[in-house]
Design a protein around this nucleic acid. Structure first.
Lengths: 224, 224
DNA sequence: TGTCGAATGCTCGATGTCGAATATATCTCG
DNA sequence: CGAGATATATTCGACATCGAGCATTCGACA
């Protein structure tokens, strides 16, 4: 049994699926993915593409079918998928659909450090974000409508529908959060405002005040 | 002006925020992040931590405050944030809150290749995913309830609330999608079933049939 | 006919990521 | 008190990622 790939880069899955359709050379794979708008759901760049292809070949999931030379252009290697490759593609896809994997979206990281910003600044930024999300949603809807008008069945734009659903949810979250900060109904805003008034000056915190604040907080949540 | 960091790994932001609170050594940073459950929103592993710290120092955003030796344990280097570091932390955080960045969740990639699975398999897998999401949501809710019961203000668990909101949205999407495949109201399911009946046998596609199908699809969407 | 820019197709090296390995100290429990 | 588990603290090297760069060819246009 060939040592399974590490299944890091989904681009490898994209390559397998393309080659499952028919043999291609790497550049052709990238162009096909681009035409079908897959580059919007799978991170695609040339450097990665070639190393991913090399890795797939090393693991026996794809193999060189021919190295052809068209006129005097650089030789291109056409790859085809192997039986092991078909199995791996199906297995991998199966796993991705079946089990949610923990992702680390940047906004989640940002939220976890939000108290480092001044409350009023946070509100201002969140409102800008909400507006950006509204625009992105409008664009997404328009793109999907255009695709459908062209005759592309919904089945082939599920990824865009998913993205839109996530954008709508994020927008709702951001609007709700903004409201709760403004009207003070979010537990902790009062403390947040106090802290920024008393212990931050020109971006620099007063070390003693900071230590005191942290200690209080940790005490209040019962040092488990 | 120090050449700004490339702002790839959010762990670097986490380090800056911790050191903004007070000087620490890397291991202490990691333990603090863990205690405060930040490792659930920021990818944290030791290898990355040390290289991130090194990079921050190289860019002048943090600096060694002392190298102390406690008993006979390995010497540890305590770092403190610089003025440039404070500026960078605030700027970075500001940008993260203000502008949505395109992410590439694995499930989005999976959806874009869903037609490669047989429709009935897809439905079966989506149902398993839905159940997993329900469980994750329950766990998330319980964790947040426990934290609040301990006295931690909501302000400090925004990231978990966000995650829950995203999970709920994904669950709704998955349930809806499953329904539309089952009842055939998703445009393209009929073709999907036909294709898998006629052109896939034991995971292998018939190349001619595949070529014909692809050509038809591309013709119908008007080759622009 | 010359040339400029876009398209084709790939390579390379700097940088980033990750997890296992290392080494010591302290705790636990019979 | 001794053995193994756990906590402290970091290093290392294999591997992945990325974007710019390179080399060629083709088409458009003056």
């Amino acid at each position: 049994m060939a040592p399974r790939t590490r299944r890091t880069n989904p681009l490898a899955l994209a390559v397998l699926v393309q080659l499952w359709e028919r043999p291609m050379h790497p550049y052709e794979i990238s162009m096909t993915l681009r035409e079908r708008r897959k580059e919007e759901s799978v991170r695609l760049n040339f450097g990665s593409l070639y190393s991913v292809v090399e890795s797939l070949e090393k693991h026996g999931l794809i193999e060189a079918a021919s190295t052809e030379r068209d006129g005097n252009r650089p030789t291109r290697t056409v790859y085809r998928i192997t039986d092991a490759g078909v199995t791996e593609a199906i297995d991998w896809l199966t796993d991705l659909v079946r089990e949610p994997v923990k992702e680390f979206p940047q906004f989640e990281a940002a939220l976890s450090f939000l108290p480092a910003l001044a409350p009023d600044d946070a509100v201002r930024l969140l409102r800008i974000r909400a507006e950006a999300l509204r625009m992105a949603l409008t664009a997404n809807d328009a793109t999907r409508a255009a695709a459908r008008a062209q005759g592309l069945p919904e089945l082939f734009e599920l990824e865009a529908e998913y993205e839109a659903a996530m954008q709508r949810a994020e927008l709702a979250f951001v609007e709700d959060l903004t409201g709760r900060i403004v009207d003070g109904s979010l537990a902790g805003v009062d403390m947040w405002r106090r802290l920024h008034d008393t212990l931050v000056h020109d971006g620099r915190v007063d070390p003693d005040e900071m230590a005191k604040a942290v200690a209080e907080l940790e005490a209040s949540i019962g040092g488990s």
